[in-house]
Design a protein around this nucleic acid. Structure first.
Lengths: 223, 223
DNA sequence: TCCAGGAGTTCACAGAAAATTTACAAATAG
DNA sequence: CTATTTGTAAATTTTCTGTGAACTCCTGGA
């Protein structure tokens, strides 16, 4: 489920957009100001940001600039009444991804969100299939040669991540950061132990393997 | 220099767009039909595609679908007179990235191109290719003539650095500073040993070589 | 509440891989 | 020709990984 942050000081519009997005399979959170958005983002990770420009306090430009400086990747979409070229140019220069002029057609907003999420390469696939092996993120199941392989939560997360980006090398610390609590000071050996468990459970899999990248970490390689 | 393919059957508009893009730092190539575009793409690599929808012969939808099936990454931008929601939806479903309704403001087109190229570049694998040799920083792999060459972390880092700035000479101390711990008191011979190892592993490479700059250091030189 | 069992983590150490040093030969500049 | 720099193989040291086992933590059921 993708999380979308909606920053818009007009309460009605904010609610309208959020409701519409929620009805269409997203998890939308509304904020009425940039400051509120900062707080919200602090406690939660979002996949996309929709922001107004003209808002009391910090405006959309400053907000986008700050967000971009912290995160190069997250798609930012301006939704504003300002239809002048200078504003558009300023927005795009700050690194926004799209610019919608109010009144916004919600259906079109949905299309643009879809395109941006796809382009941002956020993994939307709930199902990963590699030869005779497949994983389903909703059901949290892994099936090899028609037989289900029981995986614990951590095992599932790790394998799912590796297979989402086959060939890409992940460092231990990157994996730890993603799947372990920040303050959990688990030793770096922990990841190794999980890789070992996965390899053991996947020893009959002939479609891919978990490869050690000496000095760095691990990657999944399709055979 | 980014290459942009413009597929538009209206000769005047095609020329206008291409000329404008060329004036603004791009290398634009115009095609009057999808078939012509296929031929053009066959012989050249493009960074972005701008396409009309209504064209004689193969239309923009079919064209986009074919392109997407061959290349998941290249940004595709529709530039069309069709302003109905169904067409937009169909386009986005095929995997296009943006949809501009004619008449198109060229300045705005430029902004959108910039945003799409930036986004595509963020996601593009950090890859270096020199003739029949290539390195991929995400995968940490080096491939020569279709065969993977195993490189250790240090070897990879050094070679990647040299090839990132071909012809530029790197002193031993500069390389040491970048890839070794500050407090690592490795002898100066160390770099030499790595260069030798790289040369050995790359002895079949006919596209570049590691050259000693006597009294200074090393550099990669394309043949 | 206590217990059982699974999940998660830590640890130690052998074996593997990589990094570094060393010593000397070869090449180069002046 | 000499002083300096570089190439190279081999020896040595360091670091990293695989692995089994022990330990801790959590959760659900009796």
């Amino acid at each position: 489920m993708f999380k979308i942050l909606v920053v818009e000081d007009d309460r009605d519009l904010n609610r309208t957009v959020c409701t519409y997005l929620n009805k269409n399979g997203f998890e939308a959170v509304g904020c009425l100001s940039a400051n509120e958005a900062y707080d919200t983002m602090y406690g939660d990770l979002f996949d996309l940001i929709i922001s107004d420009i003209m808002m009391p306090g910090i405006d959309g430009f400053a907000f986008a600039e700050t967000v971009r400086s912290l995160d190069q990747e997250i798609p930012i979409l301006f939704m504003t009444a300002k239809d002048d070229f200078a504003s558009k140019q300023r927005g795009y220069r700050l690194g926004i991804d799209d610019y919608l002029v109010k009144p916004v057609e919600l259906e079109e907003l949905l299309l643009k969100i879809g395109a941006l999420l796809r382009r941002a390469r956020i993994n939307s696939a709930k199902q990963i299939t590699v030869g005779h092996f497949s994983m389903n993120a909703d059901e949290r199941t892994a099936v090899l040669n028609g037989e289900e392989i029981p995986l614990t939560v951590r095992e599932f997360n790790l394998l799912y991540k590796l297979l989402s980006y086959p060939k890409k090398t992940f460092t231990r610390s990157a994996l730890m950061e993603e799947f372990w609590d920040v303050d959990s000071n688990s030793g770096l050996r922990t990841v190794d132990v999980y890789m070992r468990k996965l390899r053991e459970k996947l020893q009959d899999c002939e479609d891919f393997e978990i490869v050690t990248v000496h000095g760095l970490g691990y990657k999944a390689v399709l055979k």
